[in-house]
Write a protein that binds this DNA or RNA. Sequence first.
DNA 1: CAGCTCTGCAACTGAAGGGTTGCACGTTGC
DNA 2: GCAACGTGCAACCCTTCAGTTGCAGAGCTG
Lengths: 111, 111
Amino acid sequence: MTAPALPVVCAALGDATRWEILTRLGEDPMSASALAKVLPVSRQAIGKHLEVLREVGLVESEQRGREVVHVAVGARLGALARELDRIGRSWETRLLRIKELAERPQPDAAD
Amino acid sequence: MTAPALPVVCAALGDATRWEILTRLGEDPMSASALAKVLPVSRQAIGKHLEVLREVGLVESEQRGREVVHVAVGARLGALARELDRIGRSWETRLLRIKELAERPQPDAAD
DNA sequence: CAGCTCTGCAACTGAAGGGTTGCACGTTGC
DNA sequence: GCAACGTGCAACCCTTCAGTTGCAGAGCTG
């Protein structure tokens, strides 16, 4: 299973700087140094973020001579979205069933 | 603006214990004390998690006499899922355009 | 070849946050 | 009314992590 656990992916997305990086990489693939020039953090910090993002599949990197070009992987985000949507729907379904039970005209249930 | 920023919601989902809590609350609404009995953390810790989850709209709470019953809000998760899906699609679209440009037989384009 | 750029790794700092214990207060129930 | 349960708040540890600086190596470029 290449897909990491849900909390891990969400944690990767739970940082403003990483979203900044992802947004840039979603608009235009570029290197860590290029990112460091437009973001208010050091190149090394960006490197760490990129590693986190790569580990959860949100970023893919390609060596290009002496530089490494990174790109945001929309498909991974889509996969996460589908997972979350599925879970959200299940919650709603369960809640609906509970409400139905509660509104049953017979509170007599001996359970 | 009731919807918190994306990184904040994702950060709320970026913790295994909170997912545990959400899963339980998605299956069956219950109080913090009830959660503390089935989870390996203290009631106070769970209270903090519930506050975080409530602030991003993933949990709703209802006072019920001396206890407070919490429930997971599937709709919020669904809303997040839609947002992520939209962003993911935009990344894919941009990437596709870039690839098309790269494969054009004439890199002559002056912007 | 020399110099510049891009990259990765290591050590360090400071703040954020998950977890705990202790305490005080309102609510239920015998 | 008193005990028990459920809750909220505050103080406190300790780990995690975002960010920094410094250094050494690999790859372009002139």
